[in-house]
Computed example of a mutant assay.
Amino acid sequence: MKGIVNAIVIVLFIFNVSNAYAYANAEEYSCDTGAGASKDQSLVVNAVVNIPDSAAAGTIVWRAPERAMSYNCWRGVEAFSTYYFFNPKNKNFGSEIEVGVTINGVDYLPSSTEKYAHSFASKMCGLGQTCANSYASYRMSMFVVKKSNSGSTSKTKVIDINNYIPYEVGKSKNSSNTSVRITGLEAKLLPCTSTVMIIPNTIDFGEIRSTGATPELEIQRENFTLSEQRDCQSASTYGLNGVLRPAANANLYDSMGTLVPKDNDSVGISIFDVENNTPVRFNNEFVVIPKVGTISNSKQFEARLKWRTKAPKAGRFNAGAVLDVYYK
């Protein structure tokens, strides 16, 4: 009889342990980066964002390169939503700037958006079962917005953004979330104004004969100059970076960045840096003016026209490009 009693005790013990595991699993919630299962991910930026006094309030003065990211969250038997929580530590950079986050191409400012629901996970498992993880990949970037009005910077001021946590991912603001930390970033407000001009701002390729047209055959080259003039209240060393984007009347054709007119796709235009003889890739940041302290600066570019077909259609074509310039 003693043996029977022992058997009953063992069965009850196993049953109780199983129930305790299921209950704990149902309440469990945690997130990691999905890469090495770390809770925090450090992104090294190593950049100084130079902000001119001439920039108006609300101007985006800098954008970081886009990065591919991922997170991995899980919970037991209950459904849950996963959120991005922006500026979870409530960091305040003062009256001059605000740091925003771009998620999958959409900009978010912590002052106007506290959180954003990215995904919803329905019931993933039953009692006693192994729960699946909720994994997601996304693209992120950061940007800096000037909050102060133009004409309000009388002397150079440095703002430390190092170790800033722009957002965390999870169900709620708690220690089970995964967070992103930025290192090596600072902003510098400059009592300086740069005026940038493109000369000429319109390029006329003139009349083009279609005889002998061959795809990728170069037709003509035309130069233009980007000129910068600084009006600084004190000596300031900085550079200009730019991002070239197609205007509304043009499309991009290939990875090299061939600009194709919407009204006549018989031709394409590529932009080259004359000094290095290298193509300027559209939608990618590049150096316009290196970091210098001189007042007047310039850079030479070249527009190269080429055929895209052996049977071009007659008529005019128009294609534009927009150059966004950032202080570096």
Rank of each mutant, 00 (worst) to 15 (best):
N92L: 11
S54A: 10
F80R: 02
P88M: 07
G94A: 02
C73L: 04
R63Q: 09
A55G: 14
A64I: 01
R67Q: 11
P65Y: 10
K91P: 06
K89H: 13
C73M: 05
A56F: 12
N72Y: 06
S95N: 09
N72G: 00
E66M: 10
G58H: 06
E78F: 13
R75K: 14
R75C: 12
I60T: 10
E66L: 09
M69D: 05
N90G: 14
K89V: 14
V61K: 04
P88I: 13
G76P: 00
G94F: 01
I60L: 12
T82N: 06
K91N: 12
E66A: 12
T59D: 01
A57H: 04
S95Q: 08
R67K: 03
T59H: 04
T82V: 06
S54C: 09
F86R: 03
F93C: 00
A55Q: 12
E78G: 07
S70A: 10
F86P: 11
P88D: 08
K89M: 09
I60S: 13
R75P: 07
M69L: 15
A79M: 09
R67V: 15
T59P: 02
K89C: 10
R63W: 08
C73D: 03
Y71H: 08
A64F: 06
F93Q: 00
P88V: 10
Y83C: 04
N72I: 01
N90I: 08
E78N: 12
T59W: 02
A68N: 10
S95H: 01
A55W: 08
S70H: 00
I60R: 11
Y83I: 02
K91I: 14
N90S: 15
T82E: 03
A55H: 15
R75V: 05
S54Y: 08
